[in-house]
């Protein structure tokens, strides 16, 4: 820093000219992204907030109606039930997903052969198209001919309409969500585990700590920042489940109401029914919910996340 100032002090006039050239270059470099984000993201954000206070009809003519959309939303049982389904999804998948991905990461962190092959195979589902694999899972779950029920029947049990029973459908969707995300989160956690200094384990081994004690006393506490990161990102993506539900549960499915997430509701309201003002208000509610949960997490982390 000090070095740069001395240099700049000598050819003063040229520095001024160069600086201006630099400004222009700087603006030119950032122009495409900045203009694009302003037009397609930042201004739409403002517009969306405005729409949420408007009634936007099918011809996209909007009339200001104040807080009416919000008032309506809080009385809309569909909003509550889809929010409930979404919360259920988040509450079930986040802890189970964390547990599974930590277990697999821990096993892969043991000195065994073939770690990189396992990593690759576990990671695979997270790169594939959700729409495509949802179709495959739907076929597996199929009541009459699906391989799941066939296996159950072969074992002497009875088949079940996994995706049509309102009691089980959401859980079956959660399984697909977990199947797609566990490998991904496992990679992040494994990288975190590999970043823990060996010296901790060596010291613990000298003190006579077994592998379980080492896992709970060293690995888990040292991993808390990574666990926290995975938790936050999983919660945020859990709130936005869409593709899998859209593909697996059609409108005529008896389990339709039991599986609709809040983003599904947003989509239907905005693009099936054309209530764009109301849908905008729903999207603001999703945003608010994610913000609130994230802020709670950020406050709560002080109690359990270790930053040393």
């Amino acid at each position: 820093m000090a070095d740069g100032k001395v240099k700049a002090g000598v050819p003063k006039r040229r520095a001024g000219k160069r600086q201006k050239k630099d400004w222009i270059a700087g603006y030119l470099f950032i122009a495409p992204v900045t203009i694009g984000l302003l037009i397609f993201y930042i201004w739409p954000f403002v517009q969306n907030v405005w729409f949420s206070f408007n009634d936007v009809n099918k011809f996209n003519i909007s009339t200001f109606i104040g807080l009416q959309n919000y008032a309506e939303m809080f009385q809309d049982s569909e909003v509550w039930s889809t929010f409930g389904n979404t919360l259920k999804y988040v509450i079930c998948t986040v802890p189970v997903g964390l547990f599974l991905s930590i277990c697999i990461a821990a096993l892969l962190n043991a000195k065994i052969k073939g770690t990189s092959i396992y990593r690759t195979l576990y990671f695979l589902p997270s790169v594939t198209m959700a729409a495509a694999v949802s179709m495959v899972w739907k076929w597996i779950y199929n009541e009459k001919m699906g391989i799941l029920n066939t296996a159950i029947r072969a074992a002497g049990g009875e088949g079940h309409g996994w995706l049509t029973d309102p009691k089980t459908a959401l859980f079956m969707i959660m399984i697909v969500g977990l199947w797609m995300s566990v490998g991904y989160n496992m990679i992040i956690l494994l990288a975190g585990m590999q970043g823990i200094s060996k010296s901790y384990y060596e010291a613990a081994a000298i003190d006579g700590a077994g592998p379980f004690a080492q896992f709970f006393r060293i690995t888990i506490p040292m991993l808390t920042p990574t666990i926290f990161f995975v938790m936050i990102t999983s919660i945020i993506s859990g709130f936005q489940v869409f593709d899998v539900v859209y593909m697996m549960v059609g409108k005529t499915n008896p389990a339709y109401a039991a599986t609709q997430t809040v983003v599904m509701l947003f989509y239907r309201k905005a693009f099936d029914y054309g209530y764009k003002g109301y849908a905008a208000a729903i999207s603001i509610l999703i945003f608010a919910a994610i913000m609130i949960v994230t802020v709670i997490q950020l406050i709560g982390q002080k109690k359990w996340v270790n930053y040393d």
């Binding site: 950032i30 992204v33 900045t34 984000l37 037009i39 397609f40 993201y41 930042i42 201004w43 739409p44 954000f45 517009q47 969306n48 729409f51 996209n60 945020i236 709130f239 936005q240 983003v263 947003f266 905005a270 693009f271 764009k276 849908a279 905008a280 999207s283 603001i284 999703i286 945003f287 994610i290």
Partner: peptide
């Protein structure tokens, strides 16, 4: 400018969809 652009990352994608659709339309 940088902070303004980063703020986009904090917002779930659904927030932009309706206006984006209307622009394309």
């Amino acid at each position: 400018i940088f902070i303004l652009l980063l703020s986009v990352l904090m917002v779930p994608g659904q927030i932009f969809l309706i206006p984006q659709y209307l622009i394309i339309q």
